[in-house]
Write a protein that binds this DNA or RNA. Structure first.
Length: 785
DNA sequence: CGTCGTACTTAGGACTAGCCCC
DNA sequence: GGGGCTAGTCCTAAGTACGACG
């Protein structure tokens, strides 16, 4: 059936268990999270990175770097016959860094075109006349437009094509692959592939036997194809054609070489790095933009994917295969008929150039491993992407008008006489309640993952009276493992669907596939498909969660509350991430920090009493917790304190010596260091004494007021750090980003921002603010999903 | 219908800029 | 002012959906 025989020896980590109620979120305790992760291979590093060698594109880029105004007028001309509506021009100050966007609360779907002149973030002084135009750029407020027919994506379209990765640069002569202890000369094309693998030998991918096998097959085939070649100068090398044993290959020299390069790159000065970035940016500038109906829009992935080894996820049978370099001849460009076709790289031709305005891609090619089509699309902040995003959320919003009926119906249909109807009802129940994906069929050559319709016998276990255990790998081979109490009829149905003669490997929903299911759903609402339920339930859950949040407390507290709501959604959608290797350590560090802050606070309280005994009588409860830490903990704090102190002194000593050396002065001796370290000894004595007497040393000029002030500061820091710690713990295996980016209607977040007075910057990163600008501009504090 | 190809959204991990802490 | 860490960004794989085709 599927993959299997030579599968990756992935260690399966222990399964966690959690009861979760079948009806979403609401208030189920966050403590018993149903998230469990199988241990997956982790990609540690890639260093086959394309990079540098900008030369090629430099001249063109400079030419393209003309004035914005020029570009604009040119574009407008092209657009001459496009939209006729008269633009309303509004002046809107564009957000500059941290000012919350002023909401010009505009009506959605207003029947007018409006174009706002927007101040661009201050450009360095421009000379003279056309400064006005240079500083301002027109922003097309598509969300204030009629949403008409969307089969036509554009009327005119111009762009500069795509950016190819730099050509392969041969390794230095001294760096070679070793075979059976001997250095091997390889043709550059083969050497490049050896480099792909060599660079990653320390990653989990490279340790995966399937990856190794696939890589090696392709590698050997390439060498055979190339033949001994002109590089083969010695007899030993001729044997490379017979290179057949992976275990005799030694990539360590190559690996070391790439590591060295990495280090060198890291060590170049910041100024130098900046310069490199600048030239790189300049050479790429023209690819970054395009003109759609005359309006400037950003292009997303204009960089052609560089060659490398395919990093298929999970147990992908093809992982490790060689992903070949893409040539211009393989690329199809899509561009307006009126536009000038960008020049292909020297000595090359475009595969094809077409003018299809029913699609949004600018370029496409076929990738050689799975034969899938890759596209170059516009950036996330483009109008095209924005519009379809908007539509997606409006569609999900529309579902709320039908959801009741749909639920009512599937409850009835669960008992249908017709097997097909019963399966549809059961599947809809699961998709609605558990936010499962549709689950289309997959091929033999892909990782064995499933969704609702493709669930198999072995993926669910029935536990009477009506608990179902789901355990399967979903998209990206992320494990879905939940124990769910379902309604009795669903339990009964699943039992039927699993009944003999069904066995392991058989589909649960044997009368169903996403097409059938979606067709059924369209009966309720045009355009309704399985995935809409995920969007609907995600945003609905978010709204319900946000509604619980009281409008009190600090901004930080509100952000934490928002994140908690976001987390509920992420859990619903099973958005996971691997726990960072450094997680445990960093949690430990924060915990240590908190106890240290508590200790400091306690010290201050004791100091107050030493300064003025009467305080204790005045407010005994204030001093109740000043001995909250036990002796051992305090001792640990002391140790850390002392260690830090001596480290600091040692470092300072080293620095001072460096300085002296540089100035040609005689350096200090180790005894001088010892002298300096005496201060630490002093401190140690002091602390030891404190530990005995339980009385802190009083610093000169200390007053009760000063102590009070510091205590308040410390308490603030303690709550903040605790908050931070909790957030970190709760988020360690949940990925919040995916739901925020794809499932939660951004207008919900904008509503929260406005209603609760939380700057949008605290909720959306820069990229998200750009992507969701339409939502920021159009939603207010009363917005409801 | 079932299969396939195309076009688009959704996804987690790799990489990195910049922030914070010392 | 440098190093460690993390949040944010980049990259591209892996889904969904749908229409054409036989």
């Amino acid at each position: 059936m599927s993959s299997s025989e030579d599968d990756i020896p992935l260690s399966k980590s222990s399964y966690g268990r959690a009861k979760i109620s079948p009806i979403k979120a609401e208030s189920d305790s966050e403590d018993d999270m149903p998230l469990v992760r199988k241990s997956r291979p982790r990609n540690v590093s890639t260093s086959y990175k394309e990079d540098d060698s900008e030369e090629e594109y430099k001249e063109k880029a400079v030419a393209a770097n003309g004035s914005k105004r020029k570009a604009l007028s040119q574009a407008t001309k092209v657009n001459g016959n496009a939209k006729k509506a008269k633009p309303t021009v509004a002046r809107v100050k564009k957000e500059t860094s941290v000012t919350p966007a002023k909401s010009p609360t505009s009506k959605m779907l207003a029947k007018k075109t409006s174009v706002a002149k927007v101040k661009k973030e201050s450009t360095p002084v421009k000379s003279g006349e056309d400064q006005d135009q240079e500083d301002e750029e027109e922003i097309f407020k598509w969300w204030e437009q009629d949403k008409e027919d969307d089969t036509i994506k554009w009327t005119t379209l111009q762009h500069s094509g795509v950016l190819f990765p730099p050509p392969y640069e041969k390794l230095p002569k001294s760096i070679k692959l070793f075979y059976d202890g001997q250095p091997i000369d390889l043709e550059p094309e083969a050497e490049e592939v050896a480099g792909f693998f060599g660079a990653m030998i320390e990653t989990d991918h490279a340790r995966n036997p399937v990856f190794q096998k696939n890589f090696f097959n392709d590698f050997v085939a390439l060498i055979k194809k190339l033949g001994p070649g002109k590089e083969a100068k010695n007899s030993k090398t001729k044997e490379t054609v017979n290179l057949i044993n992976f275990s005799k290959c030694d990539f360590t020299k190559i690996y070391a070489h790439f590591e060295k390069l990495k280090q060198e790159k890291k060590s170049i000065s910041t100024a130098e790095k900046k310069k490199i970035k600048l030239t790189r940016d300049a050479s790429e500038e023209k690819f970054k933009v395009c003109y759609l109906d005359g309006r400037k829009e950003l292009v997303g992935n204009f960089r052609i994917e560089p060659p490398g080894l395919f990093r298929g996820r999970g147990a992908h049978p093809k992982t490790g295969k060689l992903k070949e370099r893409v040539l211009p001849e393989q690329i199809t460009l899509n561009i307006g008929a009126e536009a000038e076709v960008p020049e292909p790289p020297k000595g090359h031709q475009w595969g094809e150039v077409k003018n299809d305005n029913t699609v949004s891609w600018l370029a496409t090619w076929k990738e050689n491993i799975n034969g899938t089509t890759k596209y170059v699309f516009l950036a996330q902040n483009s109008s095209l992407k924005g519009m379809s995003d908007f539509k997606k959320f409006e569609k999900a919003r529309e579902l709320k008008n039908y959801i009741e009926k749909i639920r009512e119906d599937y409850m009835k249909e669960l008992k249908s006489e017709l097997m097909a109807s019963r399966q549809i009802a059961t599947a809809t129940y699961l998709i609605d309640q558990l936010a499962l994906r549709a689950g289309g069929e997959k091929g033999e050559d892909e990782a064995d993952t499933v969704g609702c319709c493709s669930l198999r016998f072995e993926h669910i276990t029935l536990k009477p009276p009506h608990t179902v255990v789901f355990d399967f790998l979903g998209k990206d081979s992320i494990r879905f493992h939940q124990e769910v109490e379902v309604i009795p009829q669903v339990f009964k149905n699943l039992k039927i669907f699993k009944k003999e003669p069904k066995k392991i490997g058989d589909d649960i929903f044997d009368r169903l596939d996403p097409a059938i299911l979606n067709k059924h759903l369209q009966n309720y609402m045009p355009g309704l498909t399985a995935k809409v339920f995920r969007t609907y339930n995600a945003t609905k859950t978010m709204q319900d969660q946000l509604d619980f949040i009281k409008n009190v407390g600090t901004v930080n507290e509100k952000v934490v509350a928002y994140n908690a709501a976001n987390r509920t959604v992420a859990i619903l959608c099973n958005h996971q991430r691997t726990v960072a290797k450094t997680h445990e350590a960093s949690v430990g560090k924060i915990e240590d920090k908190i106890t240290e802050l508590v200790w400091q606070k306690n010290q201050l309280k004791k100091t107050i009493l030493l300064l003025d005994k009467s305080e204790k009588k005045r407010r005994p409860e204030f001093f109740e917790d000043m001995d909250s830490l036990d002796r051992e903990t305090i001792q640990q704090i002391h140790e850390r304190l002392l260690e830090r102190e001596s480290e600091k002194i040692t470092k300072k000593f080293a620095r001072d010596n460096e300085k002296l050396k540089a100035e040609g002065e005689p350096v200090m001796k180790q005894t001088d260091l010892k002298e300096r370290l005496k201060a630490v000894k002093e401190l140690q004595k002091e602390l030891q004494k404190e530990l005995k007497t339980n009385k802190p040393e009083i610093k000169p000029n200390m007053t009760v007021e000063k102590c009070e002030k510091q205590i308040i500061k410390l308490e603030e820091r303690i709550t903040n750090t605790r908050l931070q710690l909790k957030d970190k713990e709760d988020n360690s295996q949940v990925a919040l980003g995916t739901s925020k980016m794809n499932y939660i209607d951004p207008r919900m977040t904008v509503m929260f921002s406005k209603k609760y007075g939380v700057p949008i910057e605290k909720l959306f990163t820069k990229t998200l603010r750009d992507k969701f600008n339409w939502a920021i501009q159009s939603a207010d504090e009363n917005w409801r999903f």
